[in-house]
Amino acid sequence: MDDDREAFEAVYRAAYPAITAYAARRCDSPQDAADVVAETFAIAWRRVRDMPAGDEATLWLYGVARNVLANHRRGEGLRRARNVALDTEMASLYAGAPDGTAEMSAIGQAFRSLSEDDRELLSLVAWEGLDREEIATALGVSRNAVRIRLYRARRRFSQALAQAGVHTTESRLIPAGRSL
């Protein structure tokens, strides 16, 4: 039991920055992000004996967080008792965040038009900076499956960008109808 506590606390300390960032990048409000973080670690504690050691623990937590987040989006998330300190700290991540212009940009719209699965894969690459092997570990699927899904997600994102009139070139990005 003490070993469990020790192992969990070590992982908690190491992974907390990554998981709070993960939640803040995906939740519209600090309260939602706090809920996702809290529920993710609560599940992790319950499943501490399933938890892999070392760096893999963070990847595993991403996988747990992803499921928690999906449930939240379906309105099935567990509302926890408010942790006021956490809410406040989480809100600090929302201050100075990309404003409405980025959110409403053609790129943002193209991105939001994708399925949740596609968005999550692309986000894990672009935001969490994971490689294919790490994504495979986080999602519990094979590297080959990640490769194929990612390929398809990038293709659909390219198509959505093209439809939104965003031309992607190797050197720069030119939103259609806007002079540089």
């Binding site: 908690y12 300390r13 190491a14 907390y16 920055p17 990554a18 998981i19 709070t20 960032a21 993960y22 939640a23 803040a24 990048r25 706090a34 942790n83 300190a85 956490l86 809410d87 406040t88 700290e89 989480m90 600090s92 991540l93 929302y94 965040a97 990309p98 980025a102 959110e103 940009s105 790129i107 943002g108 991105f111 692309l122 986000s123 672009a126 935001w127 969490e128 900076g129 994102f157 960008l161 992607t168 990005l173």
Partner: peptide
């Protein structure tokens, strides 16, 4: 393309585990 959309910039850390909330 997607980096600028992230609320917490790619590669940046979120909250620290030493905070009261944590």
């Amino acid at each position: 393309l997607l980096g600028p959309l992230a609320r917490v910039a790619p590669g940046a850390r979120g909250l620290d585990a030493s905070t009261p909330g944590a």
